[in-house]
Design a protein around this nucleic acid. Structure first.
Lengths: 157, 157
DNA sequence: TTCCTTTCTTGATGTACATCAATGCACAAG
DNA sequence: CTTGTGCATTGATGTACATCAAGAAAGGAA
Protein backbone atom coordinates (compact mmCIF):
# COMPACT_ATOMS: atom_id res chain seq x y z
CA UNK A 1 0.00 0.00 0.00
CA UNK A 2 1.14 3.49 -0.71
CA UNK A 3 -0.54 6.82 -0.28
CA UNK A 4 -0.71 9.30 -3.13
CA UNK A 5 -2.10 12.74 -3.81
CA UNK A 6 -3.57 13.54 -7.20
CA UNK A 7 -5.05 16.71 -8.57
CA UNK A 8 -8.34 17.23 -10.32
CA UNK A 9 -8.35 15.71 -13.74
CA UNK A 10 -5.62 13.17 -13.07
CA UNK A 11 -6.15 9.88 -14.90
CA UNK A 12 -5.44 6.84 -12.75
CA UNK A 13 -6.34 4.10 -15.18
CA UNK A 14 -7.35 3.76 -18.80
CA UNK A 15 -9.62 1.21 -20.42
CA UNK A 16 -7.43 -1.59 -21.71
CA UNK A 17 -4.71 -1.10 -19.13
CA UNK A 18 -3.43 -4.20 -17.44
CA UNK A 19 -3.58 -2.73 -14.07
CA UNK A 20 -4.96 -4.15 -10.94
CA UNK A 21 -4.99 -1.35 -8.45
CA UNK A 22 -7.63 -0.69 -5.91
CA UNK A 23 -8.03 2.89 -4.76
CA UNK A 24 -9.38 3.88 -1.41
CA UNK A 25 -10.45 7.49 -1.30
CA UNK A 26 -9.39 9.31 1.86
CA UNK A 27 -10.38 12.69 0.59
CA UNK A 28 -11.70 13.98 -2.71
CA UNK A 29 -13.76 12.33 -5.44
CA UNK A 30 -12.99 9.77 -8.12
CA UNK A 31 -15.11 8.42 -10.89
CA UNK A 32 -14.87 5.30 -12.99
CA UNK A 33 -16.48 5.14 -16.40
CA UNK A 34 -16.41 3.45 -19.74
CA UNK A 35 -16.79 4.70 -23.29
CA UNK A 36 -18.98 2.63 -25.56
CA UNK A 37 -18.54 1.96 -29.28
CA UNK A 38 -20.60 5.03 -30.13
CA UNK A 39 -18.13 7.13 -28.15
CA UNK A 40 -20.57 7.77 -25.35
CA UNK A 41 -19.40 7.99 -21.77
CA UNK A 42 -21.11 5.95 -19.03
CA UNK A 43 -20.18 6.56 -15.44
CA UNK A 44 -19.98 3.31 -13.56
CA UNK A 45 -19.52 4.80 -10.13
CA UNK A 46 -18.54 7.79 -8.11
CA UNK A 47 -15.96 7.35 -5.37
CA UNK A 48 -16.34 9.88 -2.59
CA UNK A 49 -14.57 9.74 0.77
CA UNK A 50 -14.14 6.22 2.19
CA UNK A 51 -15.21 4.44 -0.94
CA UNK A 52 -13.05 2.08 -2.79
CA UNK A 53 -12.81 2.31 -6.52
CA UNK A 54 -11.51 -0.41 -8.77
CA UNK A 55 -12.04 -2.02 -12.09
CA UNK A 56 -13.19 -5.47 -11.09
CA UNK A 57 -11.54 -7.32 -13.89
CA UNK A 58 -9.63 -10.51 -13.32
CA UNK A 59 -6.07 -9.76 -12.34
CA UNK A 60 -3.85 -9.50 -15.43
CA UNK A 61 -6.57 -8.95 -17.96
CA UNK A 62 -7.21 -5.59 -19.59
CA UNK A 63 -9.57 -3.34 -17.69
CA UNK A 64 -12.94 -2.09 -18.84
CA UNK A 65 -12.91 1.23 -17.09
CA UNK A 66 -11.26 4.60 -17.00
CA UNK A 67 -10.66 6.00 -13.55
CA UNK A 68 -9.94 9.65 -12.94
CA UNK A 69 -10.14 12.32 -10.27
CA UNK A 70 -13.02 14.77 -10.32
CA UNK A 71 -11.51 16.70 -7.41
CA UNK A 72 -8.05 16.93 -5.88
CA UNK A 73 -7.84 13.70 -3.93
CA UNK A 74 -5.83 11.76 -1.41
CA UNK A 75 -5.77 8.04 -2.09
CA UNK A 76 -4.53 4.82 -0.67
CA UNK A 77 -3.43 2.49 -3.44
CA UNK A 78 -3.43 -1.28 -3.04
CA UNK A 79 -2.54 -3.86 -5.61
CA UNK A 80 -5.14 -6.54 -6.05
CA UNK A 81 -2.54 -9.23 -5.42
CA UNK A 82 -1.90 -7.69 -2.05
CA UNK A 83 -5.58 -8.02 -1.14
CA UNK A 84 -5.87 -11.54 -2.49
CA UNK A 85 -3.03 -12.73 -0.33
CA UNK A 86 -5.02 -11.78 2.72
CA UNK A 87 -7.94 -13.99 1.80
CA UNK A 88 -8.40 -16.20 -1.22
CA UNK A 89 -12.18 -16.25 -0.75
CA UNK A 90 -12.14 -12.74 -2.01
CA UNK A 91 -11.51 -14.15 -5.42
CA UNK A 92 -15.01 -15.51 -5.81
CA UNK A 93 -16.44 -12.21 -4.67
CA UNK A 94 -14.31 -10.30 -7.12
CA UNK A 95 -15.51 -12.49 -9.93
CA UNK A 96 -19.04 -11.84 -8.87
CA UNK A 97 -18.47 -8.11 -8.77
CA UNK A 98 -17.17 -8.37 -12.27
CA UNK A 99 -20.36 -9.99 -13.45
CA UNK A 100 -22.37 -7.22 -11.84
CA UNK A 101 -20.17 -4.60 -13.43
CA UNK A 102 -20.70 -6.04 -16.87
CA UNK A 103 -24.39 -6.26 -16.25
CA UNK A 104 -24.64 -2.61 -15.21
CA UNK A 105 -22.68 -1.44 -18.21
CA UNK A 106 -24.90 -3.52 -20.49
CA UNK A 107 -28.07 -2.12 -18.97
CA UNK A 108 -26.80 1.41 -19.40
CA UNK A 109 -25.37 1.23 -22.87
CA UNK A 110 -26.89 -1.58 -24.90
CA UNK A 111 -30.09 -2.17 -26.78
CA UNK A 112 -32.36 -5.12 -26.08
CA UNK A 113 -30.85 -6.96 -29.02
CA UNK A 114 -27.29 -6.42 -27.87
CA UNK A 115 -28.17 -7.51 -24.36
CA UNK A 116 -29.75 -10.70 -25.64
CA UNK A 117 -26.78 -11.52 -27.84
CA UNK A 118 -24.47 -10.99 -24.91
CA UNK A 119 -26.66 -13.18 -22.74
CA UNK A 120 -26.67 -16.17 -25.05
CA UNK A 121 -22.92 -15.92 -25.39
CA UNK A 122 -22.44 -15.77 -21.63
CA UNK A 123 -25.05 -18.38 -20.62
CA UNK A 124 -25.57 -20.57 -23.67
CA UNK A 125 -26.92 -23.49 -21.65
CA UNK A 126 -29.39 -21.52 -19.59
CA UNK A 127 -31.20 -20.40 -22.71
CA UNK A 128 -32.52 -23.93 -23.12
CA UNK A 129 -33.42 -24.35 -19.48
CA UNK A 130 -35.69 -21.43 -18.72
CA UNK A 131 -38.74 -19.97 -20.44
CA UNK A 132 -38.22 -16.92 -22.62
CA UNK A 133 -40.18 -14.71 -20.28
CA UNK A 134 -37.58 -15.24 -17.56
CA UNK A 135 -34.76 -14.27 -19.86
CA UNK A 136 -36.73 -11.17 -20.77
CA UNK A 137 -37.13 -10.38 -17.12
CA UNK A 138 -33.39 -10.79 -16.58
CA UNK A 139 -32.59 -8.54 -19.52
CA UNK A 140 -35.04 -5.88 -18.41
CA UNK A 141 -37.40 -6.08 -21.37
CA UNK A 142 -40.87 -7.49 -21.92
CA UNK A 143 -41.42 -10.99 -23.32
CA UNK A 144 -43.01 -9.41 -26.39
CA UNK A 145 -39.94 -7.31 -27.08
CA UNK A 146 -37.61 -10.27 -26.64
CA UNK A 147 -39.74 -12.39 -28.92
CA UNK A 148 -39.38 -9.79 -31.66
CA UNK A 149 -35.63 -9.56 -31.13
CA UNK A 150 -35.39 -13.31 -31.44
CA UNK A 151 -37.45 -13.30 -34.60
CA UNK A 152 -35.27 -10.61 -36.11
CA UNK A 153 -32.09 -12.51 -35.28
CA UNK A 154 -33.38 -15.76 -36.80
CA UNK A 155 -34.31 -13.98 -40.05
CA UNK A 156 -30.80 -12.61 -40.43
CA UNK A 157 -28.98 -15.76 -41.60
CA UNK B 1 -22.48 -25.27 6.23
CA UNK B 2 -25.07 -27.86 5.42
CA UNK B 3 -26.07 -29.50 2.22
CA UNK B 4 -29.70 -29.61 1.11
CA UNK B 5 -31.75 -30.88 -1.78
CA UNK B 6 -34.72 -28.90 -3.02
CA UNK B 7 -37.19 -29.58 -5.76
CA UNK B 8 -38.29 -27.37 -8.60
CA UNK B 9 -40.38 -24.48 -7.37
CA UNK B 10 -39.06 -24.49 -3.81
CA UNK B 11 -38.82 -21.03 -2.30
CA UNK B 12 -35.61 -20.44 -0.36
CA UNK B 13 -36.07 -16.84 0.63
CA UNK B 14 -38.71 -14.17 0.39
CA UNK B 15 -38.33 -10.42 0.01
CA UNK B 16 -38.42 -8.93 3.48
CA UNK B 17 -37.04 -12.00 5.22
CA UNK B 18 -34.30 -11.44 7.73
CA UNK B 19 -32.18 -14.15 6.42
CA UNK B 20 -28.56 -14.15 5.61
CA UNK B 21 -27.89 -17.36 3.80
CA UNK B 22 -25.59 -17.83 0.91
CA UNK B 23 -26.39 -20.70 -1.45
CA UNK B 24 -23.82 -22.45 -3.54
CA UNK B 25 -25.36 -24.43 -6.36
CA UNK B 26 -23.86 -27.88 -6.80
CA UNK B 27 -26.45 -29.01 -9.26
CA UNK B 28 -29.60 -27.46 -10.65
CA UNK B 29 -30.65 -23.87 -11.18
CA UNK B 30 -31.76 -21.11 -8.85
CA UNK B 31 -32.97 -17.64 -9.58
CA UNK B 32 -33.19 -14.52 -7.48
CA UNK B 33 -35.63 -11.80 -8.32
CA UNK B 34 -37.59 -8.90 -6.97
CA UNK B 35 -41.13 -7.68 -7.52
CA UNK B 36 -41.56 -3.95 -8.00
CA UNK B 37 -44.41 -1.73 -6.81
CA UNK B 38 -46.28 -2.34 -10.07
CA UNK B 39 -46.16 -6.06 -9.34
CA UNK B 40 -43.65 -6.75 -12.07
CA UNK B 41 -41.00 -9.40 -11.64
CA UNK B 42 -37.34 -8.61 -12.34
CA UNK B 43 -34.82 -11.42 -12.31
CA UNK B 44 -31.64 -10.30 -10.65
CA UNK B 45 -29.62 -13.36 -11.47
CA UNK B 46 -29.64 -16.97 -12.47
CA UNK B 47 -27.62 -19.41 -10.41
CA UNK B 48 -26.50 -22.42 -12.42
CA UNK B 49 -23.97 -25.00 -11.25
CA UNK B 50 -21.08 -23.58 -9.22
CA UNK B 51 -22.57 -20.15 -8.79
CA UNK B 52 -23.34 -18.67 -5.51
CA UNK B 53 -26.63 -16.96 -4.95
CA UNK B 54 -27.40 -14.57 -2.15
CA UNK B 55 -29.24 -11.45 -1.34
CA UNK B 56 -26.43 -9.07 -0.61
CA UNK B 57 -28.14 -7.14 2.08
CA UNK B 58 -26.45 -6.23 5.32
CA UNK B 59 -26.71 -9.08 7.79
CA UNK B 60 -29.85 -8.72 9.91
CA UNK B 61 -31.71 -6.36 7.64
CA UNK B 62 -34.66 -7.46 5.52
CA UNK B 63 -33.75 -8.82 2.12
CA UNK B 64 -34.69 -7.36 -1.23
CA UNK B 65 -34.92 -10.56 -3.17
CA UNK B 66 -36.88 -13.73 -3.57
CA UNK B 67 -34.83 -16.81 -4.23
CA UNK B 68 -36.31 -20.00 -5.62
CA UNK B 69 -35.39 -23.12 -7.51
CA UNK B 70 -36.12 -23.33 -11.23
CA UNK B 71 -34.96 -26.93 -11.34
CA UNK B 72 -34.45 -29.65 -8.72
CA UNK B 73 -31.23 -28.58 -7.09
CA UNK B 74 -28.51 -29.61 -4.68
CA UNK B 75 -27.20 -26.74 -2.60
CA UNK B 76 -24.61 -25.94 -0.03
CA UNK B 77 -25.96 -23.42 2.44
CA UNK B 78 -23.71 -21.06 4.38
CA UNK B 79 -24.72 -18.40 6.81
CA UNK B 80 -23.22 -15.03 6.11
CA UNK B 81 -21.82 -14.87 9.64
CA UNK B 82 -19.92 -18.03 8.93
CA UNK B 83 -18.25 -16.45 5.92
CA UNK B 84 -17.52 -13.21 7.70
CA UNK B 85 -15.67 -15.00 10.43
CA UNK B 86 -13.23 -16.30 7.87
CA UNK B 87 -12.30 -12.85 6.71
CA UNK B 88 -13.66 -9.52 7.85
CA UNK B 89 -12.51 -7.81 4.65
CA UNK B 90 -15.38 -9.55 2.99
CA UNK B 91 -17.63 -7.08 4.68
CA UNK B 92 -16.54 -4.20 2.50
CA UNK B 93 -17.00 -6.32 -0.58
CA UNK B 94 -20.46 -7.38 0.50
CA UNK B 95 -21.44 -3.79 1.01
CA UNK B 96 -20.17 -3.02 -2.43
CA UNK B 97 -22.12 -5.90 -3.93
CA UNK B 98 -25.17 -4.50 -2.27
CA UNK B 99 -24.69 -1.16 -3.96
CA UNK B 100 -24.37 -2.88 -7.31
CA UNK B 101 -27.47 -4.93 -6.65
CA UNK B 102 -29.52 -1.85 -5.91
CA UNK B 103 -28.16 -0.17 -8.97
CA UNK B 104 -29.09 -3.05 -11.24
CA UNK B 105 -32.58 -3.26 -9.85
CA UNK B 106 -33.01 0.48 -10.32
CA UNK B 107 -31.82 0.35 -13.91
CA UNK B 108 -34.22 -2.47 -14.67
CA UNK B 109 -37.33 -1.24 -12.98
CA UNK B 110 -37.30 2.51 -12.51
CA UNK B 111 -37.94 5.54 -14.65
CA UNK B 112 -35.42 8.33 -15.05
CA UNK B 113 -37.25 10.37 -12.45
CA UNK B 114 -37.25 7.59 -9.88
CA UNK B 115 -33.59 6.91 -10.48
CA UNK B 116 -32.74 10.55 -9.95
CA UNK B 117 -34.75 10.77 -6.75
CA UNK B 118 -33.03 7.67 -5.46
CA UNK B 119 -29.66 9.11 -6.40
CA UNK B 120 -30.08 12.39 -4.52
CA UNK B 121 -31.23 10.48 -1.48
CA UNK B 122 -28.24 8.15 -1.61
CA UNK B 123 -25.58 10.70 -2.53
CA UNK B 124 -26.93 14.08 -1.41
CA UNK B 125 -23.49 15.67 -1.22
CA UNK B 126 -22.27 14.52 -4.60
CA UNK B 127 -25.09 16.31 -6.33
CA UNK B 128 -23.40 19.61 -5.51
CA UNK B 129 -19.95 18.43 -6.48
CA UNK B 130 -20.32 17.17 -10.02
CA UNK B 131 -21.91 18.62 -13.15
CA UNK B 132 -25.37 17.44 -14.07
CA UNK B 133 -24.14 15.70 -17.17
CA UNK B 134 -22.12 13.31 -15.04
CA UNK B 135 -25.10 12.44 -12.92
CA UNK B 136 -27.02 11.84 -16.12
CA UNK B 137 -24.28 9.55 -17.32
CA UNK B 138 -24.37 7.65 -14.04
CA UNK B 139 -28.14 7.27 -14.22
CA UNK B 140 -28.07 6.11 -17.80
CA UNK B 141 -29.97 9.02 -19.32
CA UNK B 142 -29.01 12.03 -21.41
CA UNK B 143 -28.30 15.41 -19.82
CA UNK B 144 -31.33 16.79 -21.63
CA UNK B 145 -33.61 14.19 -20.11
CA UNK B 146 -32.23 14.77 -16.63
CA UNK B 147 -32.62 18.50 -17.00
CA UNK B 148 -36.30 18.02 -17.76
CA UNK B 149 -36.74 15.68 -14.82
CA UNK B 150 -35.14 18.26 -12.57
CA UNK B 151 -37.41 20.99 -13.91
CA UNK B 152 -40.45 18.84 -13.34
CA UNK B 153 -39.45 18.09 -9.76
CA UNK B 154 -38.83 21.75 -8.92
CA UNK B 155 -42.26 22.72 -10.27
CA UNK B 156 -43.96 20.23 -8.00
CA UNK B 157 -43.69 22.06 -4.67
C1' DT C 1 -12.96 43.61 -18.71
C1' DT C 2 -13.49 40.31 -23.17
C1' DC C 3 -13.29 35.92 -25.22
C1' DC C 4 -13.76 31.19 -25.03
C1' DT C 5 -15.30 27.00 -23.41
C1' DT C 6 -18.32 24.25 -21.05
C1' DT C 7 -22.75 23.48 -18.92
C1' DC C 8 -27.51 23.82 -18.74
C1' DT C 9 -31.91 24.53 -20.70
C1' DT C 10 -35.78 24.41 -24.06
C1' DG C 11 -38.12 23.01 -28.30
C1' DA C 12 -39.09 19.88 -32.32
C1' DT C 13 -38.85 15.44 -33.97
C1' DG C 14 -37.57 10.40 -34.00
C1' DT C 15 -37.44 5.72 -32.15
C1' DA C 16 -36.99 1.73 -29.17
C1' DC C 17 -39.56 -0.42 -26.33
C1' DA C 18 -43.95 -0.91 -23.39
C1' DT C 19 -48.66 -1.86 -23.22
C1' DC C 20 -52.91 -3.82 -24.68
C1' DA C 21 -55.30 -7.32 -27.06
C1' DA C 22 -55.95 -11.46 -29.86
C1' DT C 23 -54.49 -15.86 -31.45
C1' DG C 24 -51.93 -20.17 -31.65
C1' DC C 25 -49.43 -23.89 -29.19
C1' DA C 26 -47.94 -26.75 -26.11
C1' DC C 27 -48.37 -29.84 -22.19
C1' DA C 28 -50.78 -31.52 -18.05
C1' DA C 29 -55.13 -33.14 -15.68
C1' DG C 30 -59.28 -34.92 -16.01
C1' DC D 1 -59.67 -38.14 -26.15
C1' DT D 2 -60.96 -33.10 -24.28
C1' DT D 3 -60.33 -29.11 -21.55
C1' DG D 4 -57.61 -25.94 -19.24
C1' DT D 5 -53.58 -23.12 -18.18
C1' DG D 6 -49.34 -20.93 -19.10
C1' DC D 7 -46.14 -19.51 -22.78
C1' DA D 8 -44.86 -17.50 -27.27
C1' DT D 9 -45.98 -14.83 -31.09
C1' DT D 10 -47.99 -10.99 -33.82
C1' DG D 11 -50.34 -6.56 -34.58
C1' DA D 12 -51.90 -1.84 -33.22
C1' DT D 13 -51.07 1.91 -30.47
C1' DG D 14 -48.84 4.70 -26.72
C1' DT D 15 -44.97 6.81 -24.33
C1' DA D 16 -40.55 7.70 -22.19
C1' DC D 17 -36.56 8.93 -23.53
C1' DA D 18 -32.94 9.92 -27.32
C1' DT D 19 -31.36 12.84 -30.76
C1' DC D 20 -30.71 17.13 -33.09
C1' DA D 21 -30.37 21.97 -32.88
C1' DA D 22 -30.25 26.51 -30.85
C1' DG D 23 -29.75 29.75 -27.26
C1' DA D 24 -28.67 31.34 -22.43
C1' DA D 25 -25.89 31.27 -18.43
C1' DA D 26 -21.67 30.40 -15.88
C1' DG D 27 -16.77 30.05 -14.97
C1' DG D 28 -11.51 30.50 -16.58
C1' DA D 29 -7.76 32.45 -18.98
C1' DA D 30 -5.95 36.42 -21.34
Amino acid sequence: MKKITVSKGAVLQRKGDINSNVFIVEDGLLRSYTIDDKGKEHIYMFGPENWFVADNCEPNTPGELFIDAIEDSILKVYSKEELLKESPDINALLRRLNTMQTRILMLMSSSAKERYEHFIKTYPNITQRVPLKMIASYLGVTPEALSRVRHELSQRE
